[in-house]
């Protein structure tokens, strides 16, 4: 886990939240801008999952099952958010994506917290 990556993921997630809320306010459905943002978010999450998985060791992190659950569970959220948002025809499509991105933003910090709690 790296703090820089978590900060980068949070920043991208925040942008996706803003883009999603903006389209709800503008009474629009989601478009390529949202897709690109969510795609970038997902790519960063995959990089994080690979790096963190490679660096795991004995007792790091202490709560390994929860950590792995979050590490791989978070990968599903942007995908679910995009699929859901694209199926939604009303202006709430953007808010659906915004909720998903916000959840990712919270989950990566929880991941970092779990990572820093070592068994030693």
């Amino acid at each position: 886990m790296s703090l820089a990556l978590v900060v980068a993921i949070t920043a991208v997630a925040a942008l996706v939240v803003l883009a999603g809320l903006a389209s709800t306010v503008a009474r629009r459905r989601t478009g390529l801008v949202h897709l690109a943002g969510a795609g970038l978010l997902e790519a960063l999450l995959v990089v994080q999952a690979v790096l963190a998985f490679a660096r795991m060791g004995d007792g790091t992190p202490a709560d390994t099952p929860t950590f792995l659950g979050y590490l791989f569970g978070v990968l599903l959220i942007p995908v679910a958010g995009v699929l859901w948002a694209q199926a939604e025809r009303t202006r709430w499509a953007g808010t659906v994506l915004a909720v998903a991105a916000a959840a990712v933003g919270v989950m990566v910090w929880r991941l970092l917290q779990l990572w820093e709690t070592t068994g030693a």
Partner: peptide, 29 residues
């Protein structure tokens, strides 16, 4: 512009499903 930013939204049907979708996602998470 519509492809990039998203097409104009359709008006919510009576008994609006939009906010309900958001809530379903929150509950799902």
């Amino acid at each position: 512009r519509d492809r990039g930013l998203g097409r104009p939204a359709e008006a919510a049907a009576p008994g609006s499903t939009g906010p309900a979708r958001v809530l379903v996602l929150l509950y799902g998470i």
